[in-house]
Design a protein around this nucleic acid. Structure first.
Lengths: 147, 147
DNA sequence: GAGTTTGTAGACCATTTTAGTCGACAATAG
DNA sequence: CTATTGTCGACTAAAATGGTCTACAAACTC
């Protein structure tokens, strides 16, 4: 039940954008530096987020990327879905046809329960929630995230 | 958030053992055939389960493997832990020291929530629960699992 | 419109993990 | 003794992961 770095990096990057939302687009370079993500890897994470309508981008000087919607309208399940695909721990949960036994399989039911549990957490958390938790956690140290 | 085949195969194998608990040890060959798990792979799954005290084995003719405890005393979190390691989706959840920012990182808090959600499901499900769900689901088709 | 600053797309690659095989061996019932 | 089981370790193919690099496209600045 591991999460790849895609979701970790991606979420951190989006949180960065959420915190500085009003300041306009941030360059990938800034995000990469501040969140310690390899720049050329970060580029690849942005592609699905842009395609998925979570992030919008502006090319050219003074360009960069920004959230496409306000942070309270972006739930983590969408982010994780775009970066990692379905939260189903095994394929048959989403697609029963991959296995003959799906219909009668009780272990599959457990994996479905797991998916549900994961989704419940991710659906109930927005980027704005993270921003607020961060403020509450360390109002002073926040600058760390701007560098 | 994927589960490897280890946990899937392992859980199916244990469910098989739970269903036929009173019949004494089952051979790996039987398990492999009935659950469609490669025999030589199954062997490797048994090792940690035996070491972890979930399964006991008997060598020689008429030998095999059986549950080391009654099925209602075996929770799935233990099984998954033995086969896949921690349910933490990222390392820093179990071990904050892998990252400087752990203390102040709110994304880490979300991953902790995920771990908690997963564990809640796995801790609340025993092999006996699976046996009962299976009986309830298809009292007739149960023979499928004996083959 | 030249040049600079950004993002975009794709091919490419090294490492690790996954999923499995194989062969030799150890225990034990009969 | 021998057949039947499990045990262990070495090995391997294929896929996923986590990147890098090059070329290019858009857009702003002068």
């Amino acid at each position: 039940m591991k999460l790849s770095t895609r979701a970790q990096y991606g979420t951190r990057a989006l949180l960065y954008l959420a915190v500085r939302q009003e300041k306009g687009p941030a360059t990938l370079k800034d995000i990469a530096r501040s969140q310690q993500i390899p720049l050329s890897y970060l580029e690849h994470l942005m592609t699905p987020l842009i395609a998925g309508g979570v992030v919008r981008s502006v090319r050219g000087p003074r360009g960069g990327v920004a959230l496409a919607r306000s942070s309270d309208k972006i739930k983590l399940d969408e982010v994780v879905q775009l970066l990692e695909g379905s939260s189903a721990p095994v394929e048959c949960v989403d697609n029963p046809n991959v296995c003959d036994r799906s219909r009668s399989c009780v272990t599959r039911d457990v994996w479905s329960d797991l998916k549900r549990a994961v989704d419940t957490v991710l659906e109930s958390t927005t980027l704005q929630d993270l921003v607020e938790r961060q403020k509450r956690k360390q109002p002073s140290e926040q600058e760390m995230y701007y560098i």
